[in-house]
Simulated assay, not measured.
Amino acid sequence: MKIAELSEKLMGMSPEVWERHANKWSGWSRVASLPLIALAVWSRIYIGVWAVVPLALALLWLWINPRLFPAPEDTDNWMTKGVFGERVWLNRQECPIPRHHIRAGFILNGLSGLAALPYLYGLIWLDAWATVFGTITIMLTKLWFLDRMVWLYDDMRHQNPDYAAWMKENPSLG
């Protein structure tokens, strides 16, 4: 099982949870997760072993976040389409996607994985520069990956009616 699929399974990402996670507020508030985890780990300097409490809270946030917000009424925004694209990406075995999206996705995920090395080093050895560099690089590659997922979703929703059905227009606009 691949890391993304394992993560999805561990997170309990049912279709209902994915729909709620498509709320732009879920996506944008989740961007803060990596720095929260870093702060939680670094808190061991001040609170010692009690740092497991903020770390547990940060990890709990990762699990609660996709469930916290209601399903969006309007899905025509960048973050929501990025979340839709992630679903398409994870479903690429059942519904093949264009090769250029696969290549870009693997490159960006690879870069993010490489950036995890200084991030983890910084967390373990309390190296601020490594932690900040890793955090920024992971976040930039994740946002770039998300931008590619918007592109992927826009391409695939025209080919797959199930994907197209995820789009909802704002009722006040229409």
Rank of each mutant, 00 (worst) to 15 (best):
residue 26 S to N: 12
residue 114 L to G: 12
residue 140 L to D: 06
residue 133 F to S: 03
residue 95 C to K: 08
residue 10 L to P: 04
residue 172 S to K: 15
residue 112 S to Q: 11
residue 40 A to V: 03
residue 159 Q to R: 15
residue 170 N to H: 11
residue 23 N to G: 07
residue 95 C to E: 07
residue 91 N to T: 03
residue 40 A to M: 08
residue 136 I to E: 04
residue 117 L to N: 06
residue 52 V to P: 10
residue 90 L to Q: 05
residue 80 T to K: 03
residue 155 D to H: 15
residue 144 W to L: 10
residue 125 W to R: 02
residue 53 V to P: 04
residue 55 L to W: 12
residue 14 S to E: 11
residue 126 L to A: 00
residue 49 V to G: 14
residue 162 D to V: 04
residue 87 R to K: 07
residue 145 F to S: 13
residue 122 G to Y: 11
residue 6 L to A: 14
residue 120 L to R: 01
residue 168 K to C: 04
residue 5 E to L: 12
residue 93 Q to S: 05
residue 63 W to V: 10
residue 139 M to K: 08
residue 44 R to C: 05
residue 92 R to A: 09
residue 100 H to F: 14
residue 59 L to A: 11
residue 128 A to S: 14
residue 85 G to H: 05
residue 142 K to C: 06
residue 9 K to G: 09
residue 31 V to W: 02
residue 44 R to I: 02
residue 86 E to H: 09
residue 103 R to D: 13
residue 21 H to L: 01
residue 80 T to H: 02
residue 67 R to A: 11
residue 9 K to H: 13
residue 115 A to T: 00
residue 77 N to I: 00
residue 114 L to I: 13
residue 108 L to E: 07
residue 7 S to I: 01
residue 40 A to E: 07
residue 143 L to M: 14
residue 37 I to S: 05
residue 34 L to D: 02
residue 42 W to F: 14
residue 15 P to C: 02
residue 169 E to P: 00
residue 88 V to L: 08
residue 29 S to A: 09
residue 41 V to I: 11
residue 133 F to K: 04
residue 142 K to I: 02
residue 21 H to T: 01
residue 108 L to H: 08
residue 129 W to S: 00
residue 129 W to Y: 06
residue 23 N to S: 01
residue 42 W to P: 01
residue 117 L to Q: 07
residue 128 A to G: 03
residue 103 R to C: 07
residue 5 E to A: 12
residue 62 L to G: 02
